[in-house]
C-alpha cells in the first residue's frame, strides 16, 4: 500500500495550486499533511481521488497512475475530500447503499456494513433524507460512505473540521484503528490532532512541498526540544514561515 506523487503540478488558469510536488508514502501508518489554508492540500487529495486531473506530473496509487487507470486505482482508495454531503432527497440508507453498490459489495455486505457504521458513527435514524441532516451529521454520513469498503488507502481532508468534541472523539478513534492496518493520509491544521494520530508529517505551503519526516524527527529538529504538539507548533511556524 503506497501512494506516490511525481512532480505533481496543478494550475487553475494561471494560479499555481500545486508546484512540482513529489512524495512517496507507504503504509500502514498515518501521515499528517500540514499547511495553511490555500496551501494545496485539498488539491493534492482531489488529484489522488480522480476529482481533478493534474496539469503535469503523476499521481500513483500502488503503482497505478490515477490519470490512466482511475477505476482500477480507486479500488484501493477511499477519499473524504472537502465537505461532501449525501443527496438531499435520498435517505442515509439509500446513499450508503449506493456507495456499497459502486464499491462492488453484495447486498448482505452492504447491509451489515451500514449497521456497523451506524453504531460506530452514531448515525441515528437511517431513513432521514440528506437535506434534513445537521452539518455534523452530514459529515458523519460522508465519513460512513468513505468507510463502506475496506480499502488499503484512506485520504481524509480535515476529517474533524466542523465536528463537536464527541464527534471528534469518535472520528479520532476510528482513525487510530484504521492506521494500524492501512495507509492514512490526512490533511489538517490542528497540530495536537496530528501529534496524537500521525506517525509522519508532510509540510506544504503555496503549492510546494517543504519537508516530510517522522513527527519525532521534526519535533526534535525544529521544536526546541519541546515534546508533543508544542514542539510541532514551533516546527510548523519555522517551516511554513521559512524560519
Amino acid at each position: 500500500m503506497d501512494i506516490e506523487a511525481i512532480n505533481l503540478t496543478k494550475r487553475f488558469g494561471n494560479r499555481v495550486a500545486l508546484d512540482n510536488v513529489s512524495f512517496r508514502f507507504s503504509g500502514p501508518g498515518a501521515i499528517g499533511y500540514l499547511g495553511p489554508n490555500g496551501a494545496g492540500k485539498t488539491t493534492t487529495l482531489k488529484i489522488f481521488s480522480h476529482l481533478l486531473r493534474p496539469t503535469y506530473g503523476k499521481a500513483l496509487i500502488n503503482g497505478i497512475d490515477v490519470a490512466d487507470g482511475y477505476a482500477k486505482a480507486l479500488e484501493s482508495v477511499s477519499a473524504l475530500v472537502e465537505t461532501p454531503e449525501p443527496y438531499p432527497k435520498l435517505s442515509i440508507k439509500d446513499f450508503l447503499t449506493l456507495i456499497g453498490g459502486m464499491r462492488g459489495l453484495s447486498r448482505e455486505e452492504t447491509t451489515s456494513r451500514i449497521a456497523e457504521l451506524k453504531e460506530k458513527l452514531s448515525l441515528e435514524d437511517l431513513a432521514v433524507q440528506g437535506a434534513k441532516l445537521s452539518k455534523g451529521h452530514k459529515q458523519r454520513v460522508a465519513l460512513a460512505a468513505t468507510l463502506m469498503s475496506d480499502t488499503d488507502i484512506m485520504l481524509l481532508d480535515e476529517p474533524t473540521a466542523g465536528l463537536d468534541p464527541a464527534e471528534t472523539y469518535d472520528v479520532k478513534k476510528i482513525i487510530k484503528e484504521l492506521k494500524r492496518t492501512r495507509l492514512v493520509l490526512m490533511s489538517s491544521h490542528l497540530l495536537d490532532e496530528v501529534t496524537e494520530l500521525c506517525d509522519s508529517v508532510a509540510f506544504i505551503n503555496k503549492g510546494r512541498l517543504l519537508l516530510t519526516d517522522t513527527v519525532k524527527n521534526v519535533t526534535n529538529k525544529f521544536g526546541k526540544g519541546k515534546a508533543g504538539s508544542a514542539g510541532l507548533e514551533d516546527a510548523y511556524l519555522k517551516i511554513i514561515k521559512g524560519g
Partner: peptide, 14 residues
C-alpha cells in the same frame, strides 16, 4: 454540483 459528487465520483466506477 451537488456536494455528493465529491464522494460518488471518487468511486472506482468508470
Amino acid at each position: 454540483y451537488y456536494p455528493a459528487g465529491l464522494i460518488v465520483l471518487a468511486q472506482p466506477v468508470k
